[in-house]
């Protein structure tokens, strides 16, 4: 599986506990640890490919899309739809793989990406 060099990203969320529950329940991210940053609890979640997502309490959402990697975009797309989460793109084929987009409960623009290695497929 292809991985970018940067495998640690931060996302601003309104409520870290609710956001952590959202990502773990809907996208199968696993909690790796709770970091204390300036006395504030910041959960670190691990994606299936080893990339980490650190949740940081902040009232304004990220301005740039946050990429969350998945091993099956269609599965997660159906799961999110079934939970009533509004998707603003159906799964789209890109040069890097299959992706769809939605807003998380904090208003962050999430790009859910199933990376596909087409070189030897």
């Amino acid at each position: 599986m292809m991985t970018d060099e940067l495998n640690y990203q931060v996302i601003f969320v309104r409520d870290v506990s609710l956001a952590a529950a959202f990502f773990m329940e809907n996208l199968d991210l696993k909690k790796e640890e709770d970091l204390l940053v300036a006395g504030i609890n910041c959960p670190v979640l691990k994606m299936f490919n080893g990339h980490r997502l650190m949740l940081l309490k902040h009232f304004e959402p990220e301005t740039e899309p946050t990429v969350i990697y998945t091993d099956d975009c269609l599965r997660d797309f159906c799961k999110l739809k079934r939970k009533g989460i509004e998707m603003f793109s159906v799964p789209i084929y890109r040069t890097k793989g299959l992706s769809c987009e939605f807003f998380d409960p904090s208003g962050n623009h999430i790009l859910l990406l199933e990376e596909r290695d087409y070189t030897d497929a």
């Binding site: 599965r75 739809k81 299959l98």
Partner: peptide
Amino acid sequence: GDMKFNLLNLKKQVEEGNTDNLL
């Protein structure tokens, strides 16, 4: 290509006993 990835994902779901018709 994408056909292979989608069929392998479908195979995995069927093997795991997933019966979600939408999926």
